[in-house]
Structures are given as structure tokens and as C-alpha cells.
Computed example of a mutant assay.
Amino acid sequence: MTPWLRRSRPRTPAPTLPSRDTSTATTRVDLHELTPDTGVFLGHCAALHLTFFEQLSHAVANAPRVAEKDALAEAAATTLARYRGLVAEMGRLKLDPAAVMEPHLAGVQEFERRTMGADWHEQVASAHVAIGFLTDFWIRLGAGLPRESRDRVEAVLAQGDLERPLHAIIERAIAANPRLSSRLALWCRRLVGDTMLQARSALALHADRSRDEEQIEPVFTELIAEHTRRLDRLGLTA
């Protein structure tokens, strides 16, 4: 897979974010009508988690201090545990992991290339945004899986805490160099467009796209709102 050490190509602005709403929805909207076949779901989600693990492993190798290496190693271990959990579910369903993951690798690698960041700080910020956004997305998409698989997949995606160690790294970096704040805020904003496209690529869309959009729009509104809160907790402007 493409390493994070190379510089990214010129960046394009992400779509304009909707205005913020500080209220929290009492009912989480899901995507059960757009959930793909279980094998397709597991293959795509596992391919992403394998890529997350590789990205975080590269970040560990290039971290400037032991504290950052330790936090990133913790996050990488969590993504690996989730990946193994998804592969275990494939085994229960007698699916070949390589066969169900292979169709998704090209798209996942392209997403990785577009969001790798120009330096180590942007790499960590990319992981924080992409993993957080896409974990929220895949949990919602999993609502349409058969009951037993749905419960196991949701438990797998809830393993560990990826936000805390990545948040702590970025927070310390900004405290040490406040000038990073505006640059990382802009970079995180630019990530949203590609991350949304990666999420949409997992949907099983129908011929009637207008009906699909009625279900997609409120989910992505929620996801962007949580993305905004994630950056607000870092003092960044989404």
C-alpha cells in the first residue's frame, strides 16, 4: 500500500459544511436500507481497517518522541484487533477473506493516497478524522446486516478507544506549536470530501436515487456534526 511518507498531490477543497447544530439527536439515524450484502460489507470494512493499521504503523515509525510512538501503537493495536474481528466474522460465515477484500483494495488505496497528508502531523490528523468519521458510518451501515452478524460487527467496531490517543497526540502538538492549529484545521476540513466519498462508495444504492438520498442526507448530516464536535474538542474550527 502507498506509504504516508510521500507528499500528497495538490489538495482540493471539501464540500461546504452545513451550519452547526449544538443539539444532539435523540435517535441515531441508520442506513439499513442501503446496507450491502454481508460479504461485501465485511470485505470493504476489513480492507479499510487493514489500511488504517498500516497508516498508523507508518506514523509510529516516524513519531518524534516515545510518548507519540506509544499512543500511536495503542491506536494501531486497536485497528488490528477490529480487523481481526471482522476476519473472524468472515470465518463464521465461511467466507474467504482474501476474496471478499480484494475488490475493495483499489478504492481503499486511492483513498489512502488522497488523505495521507504532507507531513507527520497531517498524517495523524488524517487518521483521527478518517477513522472517527468512518467508524461512525460503518456502525450505522451495519444496521442492515442480519441480526447475529450485526451484533458481532457492532461489538467489533466498538473495541478499544481510537479517539483518545489520537486526540492526545494532536492536542500536545498544538500546545507545543500553536501555529499548527490553523494548518491542521484547514487540512481536516479538506479531508471531509474524500472521507464522505469513501463512505458513499460502500452504499448499496437503488435505481431510485432520490429515495436513497432521503436516507443518506440525515445520516451524513449527523456524521459531519460529530466530525465538527471532534475538531471542536481540539480547539480546531471544522
Rank of each mutant, 00 (worst) to 15 (best):
R7I: 10
R7C: 00
S8V: 12
R11P: 00
P15K: 08
T16Y: 09
L17Q: 14
P18S: 14
R20P: 07
S23Y: 11
S23D: 13
T26I: 10
R28W: 09
L31I: 06
D37F: 04
D37H: 11
D37S: 10
D37W: 07
G39L: 03
V40A: 10
F41E: 01
A46E: 03
A46F: 00
H49G: 06
F52W: 04
L56T: 04
H58I: 03
A61H: 11
K69Y: 02
K69F: 05
A73C: 08
T78R: 02
T79F: 01
L80M: 10
Y83C: 05
G85K: 02
V87F: 06
E89F: 04
G91F: 12
K94T: 12
L95W: 02
P97L: 01
E102W: 13
A106M: 06
E110R: 15
T115S: 09
E122M: 09
S126H: 01
A127M: 08
H128S: 04
I131A: 09
I131Q: 06
T135V: 05
F137L: 04
R140M: 05
A143G: 10
L145W: 09
L145Q: 04
L145F: 07
R150F: 06
L157S: 03
Q159S: 08
R164K: 04
R164F: 07
P165F: 10
L166D: 04
H167V: 02
A168Q: 14
A168R: 12
R179N: 11
S182Y: 05
R189D: 07
L191G: 04
T195V: 04
T195D: 02
Q198H: 14
A199N: 01
A202L: 09
A202F: 01
L203E: 01
A204R: 13
L205M: 13
L205F: 04
A207G: 15
A207I: 12
S210P: 00
E214T: 15
Q215T: 12
E217V: 15
T221Q: 07
A225E: 11
R229A: 12
L234R: 00
G235S: 08
A238M: 08
